[in-house]
Write a protein that binds this DNA or RNA. Sequence first.
DNA 1: TGAAATGTTGGGGCG
DNA 2: ACGCCCCAACATTTC
Length: 483
Amino acid sequence: MSNASASAGDKPALVLFRHDLRIADNEALTAAVASGKPVLALFVRDDESPGGRPIGGARRWWLHHSLASLARSLAELGITLHLRAGPMLSVVASAVDESGADLVLWNRRYDPFGREADAEMKAALIGDGVTCVSHEGYLLQEPWRVATGSGGPYKVFTPFWNAVAATPVRAPLPAPIGPIRPGPAIATERLDDWRLLPTSPDWAEEFSAHWLPGEPGARDKLARFRQSGQGYALDRDRPDVDGTSMLSPHLAHGEITPAQIFAALGRETGVDMATFRKEVGWREFCWHLLFHFPDLGRAPFNRTFRNFPWRDDRIAVAAWQRGQTGYPIVDAGMRQLWRTGWMHNRVRMIVASFLTKHLLVDWRDGEDWFWDTLVDADPASNPANWQWVAGSGADAAPYFRIFNPILQGEKFDPAGAYVRQYVPELTKLPDRFIHKPWEAPETTLFSANVKLGQSYPVSLIDHKAARQRALEAYQAMRGTDDD
DNA sequence: TGAAATGTTGGGGCG
DNA sequence: ACGCCCCAACATTTC
């Protein structure tokens, strides 16, 4: 049969990979195989094109390993993963020229830059007589299909999630079965030449102890979570407990889809899995927001915050970034981020509240740092959640909800195990002082070998004073509201 | 998906 | 036995 239809079938199908580094539940790949044409796989890295936002250092590390993994999976199916960097349209147009492809398939992107680049590519390819087919998969629902009763986008999570959770989720596709007939070999760039991995210094040294980028690693994390997900509703708030799924970087890179996750959970009810589904829902909500409000990453969602008197304090920001604020739970979080490329969700809220409220630093500075250091940084969740904590976001906590870093530590890391893991200079402090070393008596500090101001910093700012100042800044903003 | 200030209540110590 | 005070525990409100 393949010989009889050889002339038509020999024009290859070109499958694009961008943020969908998987072979299972990959509609574009499956459709390419189903076309009966030879298949050409191409990863295009266009985030450094004009207008794009280059991925951060942590994601570069992840991308390197994930691409290596994807290339292995595709090789097992009999096809080569080609690599090219540059503007989407010109990269794909030359790949089409070189290979003679008359069909190009991809899974849709939803960020403003990606959407624009893909729309431009589609128009140009169609103009050249190339068939283009785009597919879904990155989200539970296409953002334009979810609307309020009056037809607009949602701005509040709960009704959004009620609507999405009531809609059936697509059944995930199995991985294609090889061997797949390969398209012609075209030139490919070499992964090592992209120099995605850090060298001197290799700050990602510890990353591989926590992560296995790629589809098999995503499957492992999901299987592990299904085994140990009992208690999630409470454990998810405990950074000292291994209670979260840790699927976020795999989702961000499209190594697993929300549909696959929901299918794996099955019909399982109960508070734990309902809570977990809802967390996946927050990711979905963030993408919904970014899709409908493309400015989300740059400007305050709540326009009143345009008048907020942010402080420009480079020294405080540097102390925050390095985990040297003098508040143990904040410092533990920032150091976990640096060492592992990830931070526990509860602690993300604490450090974000500390930066925006105690230090009065613009949430965009925090968002930039997370963008560079998180392996799961994505253009929707990162700004949406920063805005949420800062108080300017959709469905945001009122501004005056200022986290007390001491109480949060005592509540969610009661024995100080999390702090001790990442702030070893405090290891010997008794539990009751682990979140407030400045209250420990001299003799206790001495025997714990803690010298405030030397072995561990004096806190940047007193909590009570910082809280007062933040509330005053909030009042000042409201006073100058010109809307 | 807070925290702090303020208000209320009730048990126990004590004169 | 009684009233008074203190304050912990809980509830409400305010930021």
